[in-house]
Design a protein around this nucleic acid. Structure first.
Lengths: 229, 229
DNA sequence: CGTATCTTTGAGTCATGTCAAAAACGGTGG
DNA sequence: CCACCGTTTTTGACATGACTCAAAGATACG
């Protein structure tokens, strides 16, 4: 990993920032290295700022009781986390945890807010991010309500491939535990497991260790389609 | 109902608009009366603009197949609908349907976009709306994944009471069909029905026709709590 | 090697959705 | 005022998807 200096070209904030605002950004950001499985913030914590992922992967999740959670989305290099601090509540409604070692760029709320009020372009971009997240969230919400687990697994795999791309040998370019995959699809560990077995048997996907390869994208896509009576 | 002239004090857009922009707003908005059960827009339609609800109630929903849907949220006087047109796609990802007669204020995309670029305050407010919607959406998403129907019904009722308030005699101030209530909790009609019966038997709620009264708010609240092992 | 963690499989249970039919309701027109 | 029809409500029986629990294999790790 490179040193922990924010690459101004990759950082969401810096990229959309006004030229003469850049020095201020540089002065106010703080780069932090996060180890695997360490939390960036925890739901219930007071909001202190917003994070821009510079490298690594983060899961944004919401807990249920002591043992369960739902992974809402993954954030990778170039993405934001903590934008929900923008709501009326100054409390993080979700948790964010590194699933790979990360370097993140932290901007405290105060500076962030003043940037918002000065930089309309940045605000506009962030708004776009929120709108897209909301669309995705509502789609998954409907799926959770109506789509069976099998379809949701298919959807989850397609989403991951879409977000993280594939390696040279075609495997989805992310390293997720089965447990996290289950939490992402909103299913029990064993349920996910069985479905993955089925999909493998049917040659729709191949698995090697934790790596997953999608053989038949269209077939997976079909699994996500609505079934009329 | 008053005539169809937008009350500038109630309209989300107008309220946050710059003084000298007001005439332009007045010139560019179009007030439309919508009958009950009429759609404002349908998922899949190209985005033409954004709607501000001036009076009445709208359900924002997403379909599954021909028969099923999930109601994502309700919008009442003062709320926005169609803000998701803000995402990267110029296609409405959801539908909006009046469940009571409505008067809405329509702003076409072009004017809306130019307002966004000129009026930072408005953009900021809209961003806040999106952030809050996203929080709510993600919470409900987790609930859909982990909370049993009984708890979700309780949550739905509390949400409705919270959003619409109560009438003089204590009933939740909204007129929803049972079918919509089911779609809002993400459950089958009959499931909702049985749960409502249970809650009534247990004196947690009272029902009179379509009207619902919450007797024991705390008990409902407890039903929405996470259960540790 | 022994302990811990993760994977895999089987069996059982339960919540929830599905289906079908009867009952109640509401409006409409004769 | 009543008969009729369409809709919504109500109830029961049933099917089954998905979760839970538990235990056996596998894999990693110090």
């Amino acid at each position: 990993m490179a040193n922990n200096v924010c690459d101004l070209k990759s950082c969401f904030l810096c990229k959309s920032c006004l030229k003469d605002w850049l020095p201020a950004v540089a002065a106010n950001r703080k780069n932090i290295a996060i180890k695997k499985n360490r939390q960036l913030f925890n739901e219930g914590d007071p909001v202190t700022g917003i994070y821009f992922i510079y490298s690594g992967t983060v899961k944004v999740h919401k807990k249920w009781g002591r043992e369960k959670e739902l992974i809402l989305r993954f954030a990778k290099a170039g993405d934001v986390a903590g934008q929900l601090g923008l709501g009326d509540d100054a409390i993080y409604p979700v948790s964010a945890t590194a699933i790979e070692p990360c370097v993140v760029c932290f901007i405290d709320t105060y500076f962030f807010e003043s940037t918002l009020s000065i930089n309309a372009n940045f605000t506009r971009q962030l708004m776009s991010v929120l709108a897209n997240d909301l669309q995705e969230s509502e789609k998954r919400m409907r799926n959770l309500a109506h789509m069976p687990v099998r379809g949701r697994v298919a959807q989850a795999l397609l989403n991951l491939q879409n977000q993280f791309g594939i390696t040279e040998d075609g495997y989805i370019n992310i390293d997720v535990s089965r447990q996290d995959l289950a939490s992402f699809t909103g299913a029990a560990y064993e349920s996910l497991f069985r479905v993955m077995n089925d999909l493998t048997d049917e040659k729709l996907v191949s698995v090697s260790g934790k790596s997953i390869l999608i053989n038949d994208e269209n077939a997976l896509l079909r699994l996500t389609e609505e079934i009329d009576l």
